[in-house]
C-alpha cells in the first residue's frame, strides 16, 4: 500500500539486547502537521523518533519519508533524507568547539556551494527566526539551556527542511523558557509549514504544540488523536498518564 503521510512508520520492531523497545509501532504523520509523541520515560519515544530520519534502523517494519522507504538505506543514501528531515536533540548536541554561527553554518558549508556572504546571511536569518540575534560568536558553553535549544533549532532550520524532529525540546527548562520554546515550535510550524514531530513527556507542552497526539506505552502506540480526543479517551492508562502528569 502506498504511504500517504509525509512520515509513516509501519509495524516497527526494535530491541536492545533482549529488551524489546518498539513492538509493532505504526504511525502516520501528515504533511505540515505537528504530531506529539507522548509517553513516560523509557517508553521508546526517542527510539521511535530516531527511526524517522534513519539514525536507527528497525529489526523489522518500514519507515517512509515523503513516499520513500528509508529503513534499509545505506548511511550515504540517507544524506538526502536527513537534509529534508532535521532533528533537534534533547541535549541540543551543538558542536562545542564551534561558535553558534559556525554550528549553524556547518550544514550549509557541507551541502551547499553558497558563498560566505550568503552563508552569513542565512545564519542571521535563522537566528532571527529563533530570537537569537547577536549570539553568533558565543560558544555553547557560554549559553543558557534555553539559548542552546534555540541555537540547536536554528541549526536544524539552516537547510530549510520539510520536517523537524524534536526530542524533548523543553526538558530541563524553566516554565517561562518552556512556554517560549513551545510558542516557537508553533510559530515555526505556522510560518514555515514544516511537518513537526515532537517527543515529550510534558503534557502541558504537548497540548500547546500538538495538532495530533500519539501515546506510546510498552513499545506500542496506544492512542492517536487530536487534543480533544485524547482528553475524551476512555482508555484508563491514557487517562492515568494525563492525570498523573
Amino acid at each position: 500500500m502506498e504511504p500517504t503521510g509525509f512520515i509513516e512508520c509501519r509495524n516497527l520492531h526494535k530491541s536492545f539486547g533482549d529488551k524489546p523497545v518498539l513492538e509493532g509501532v505504526s504511525l502516520r504523520i501528515d504533511r505540515g502537521e505537528t504530531m506529539v509523541i507522548l509517553g513516560g520515560s523509557g517508553s521508546g519515544k526517542t527510539v521511535l523518533l530516531k527511526h524517522m530520519n534513519g539514525l536507527m534502523n528497525p529489526e523489522s517494519g518500514e519507515v517512509f519519508v515523503d513516499g520513500h522507504e528509508i529503513s534499509r538505506l545505506e548511511e550515504e543514501d540517507l544524506r538526502e533524507v536527513r537534509k529534508r528531515v532535521a532533528m533537534v536533540f534533547q541535549g541540543c548536541a551543538l558542536f562545542d568547539s564551534l561558535t553558534v554561527a559556525e554550528n549553524i553554518a556547518y550544514p550549509l558549508l557541507e551541502h551547499t556551494t553558497l558563498p560566505p556572504a550568503a552563508v552569513r546571511e542565512r545564519v542571521e536569518e535563522v537566528l532571527a527566526l529563533v530570537d537569537l540575534e547577536g549570539s553568533e560568536d558565543l560558544y555553547p558553553a557560554e549559553m543558557s539551556g534555553g539559548m542552546k535549544k534555540r541555537a540547536a533549532l536554528a541549526r536544524a532550520l539552516a537547510l530549510k527542511p520539510s520536517g523537524l524532529l524534536y526530542d524533548e525540546p523543553t526538558t530541563g527548562l524553566d516554565p517561562i523558557m518552556t512556554h517560549r520554546i513551545n510558542r516557537l515550535i508553533r510559530d515555526l510550524q505556522m510560518k514555515l509549514g514544516v511537518t513537526s514531530v515532537v517527543v515529550t513527556h510534558d503534557i502541558q507542552s504537548a497540548f500547546v504544540v500538538a495538532e495530533r497526539i500519539a501515546f506510546l506505552r510498552g513499545g506500542r502506540i496506544r492512542f492517536v488523536g487530536t487534543r480533544e480526543e485524547i482528553q475524551r479517551s476512555s482508555d484508563v492508562i491514557v487517562q492515568e498518564f494525563l492525570i498523573g502528569g
Binding site: K50, E75, A93
Partner: peptide
C-alpha cells in the same frame, strides 16, 4: 555521549 555524533549524522555528515 552528548549526541554530537548523532547530530553529525542527522546533518547528513559521515
Amino acid at each position: 555521549v552528548t549526541e554530537q555524533i548523532d547530530a553529525l549524522r542527522s546533518l547528513g555528515v559521515n
